[in-house]
C-alpha cells in the first residue's frame, strides 16, 4: 500500500515537472512572440473601436436623413425674397 502511494506521488511529481515550460517560454510561447501577439491584439482592439465609432456616426447620419425624408412633403423653406423693386412706370 505504501509502495502504491509513493509511486503515485512520484508520478504526480514527474507530471508537474514535465508540464513546466522551458525557461524563456510563457505558456509554451516565446516572450517575443507573445509581445507581438499582444501588439496585434491591441491593434485589433483599436481597429474595432474605430469601426464602432464609424458605425455610430453612420447610424446618426442615417437617422438624420430618415427624419428629413419622414417629413415627406413638408417644404424646405425657400430663402427670403431677394432683390428689390424699381419705381413703377405709368403707361
Amino acid at each position: 500500500m505504501r509502495k502504491m502511494a509513493l509511486l503515485l506521488i512520484a508520478v504526480v511529481a514527474l507530471t508537474m515537472i514535465g508540464c513546466q515550460p522551458p525557461e524563456g517560454l510563457t505558456g509554451g510561447v516565446s516572450q517575443e512572440a507573445f509581445d507581438e501577439l499582444k501588439t496585434q491584439v491591441e491593434t485589433l482592439q483599436t481597429d474595432l473601436d474605430n469601426v464602432h465609432a464609424s458605425l455610430d456616426q453612420l447610424i446618426e447620419d442615417y437617422n438624420a436623413l430618415k427624419a428629413k425624408v419622414d417629413k415627406g412633403s413638408k417644404p424646405v423653406p425657400k430663402p427670403p425674397a431677394k432683390g428689390g423693386i424699381k419705381p413703377p412706370t405709368q403707361k
Binding site: 432683390g83 423693386i85 424699381k86 419705381p87 413703377p88 412706370t89
Partner: peptide, 15 residues
C-alpha cells in the same frame, strides 16, 4: 410700393 400686396411687372423686379 402701393398696398399690402401689389401686382407687379416682371421687369420691375431687381434683378
Amino acid at each position: 410700393t402701393h398696398g399690402p400686396i401689389d401686382i407687379v411687372s416682371p421687369g420691375d423686379h431687381i434683378p
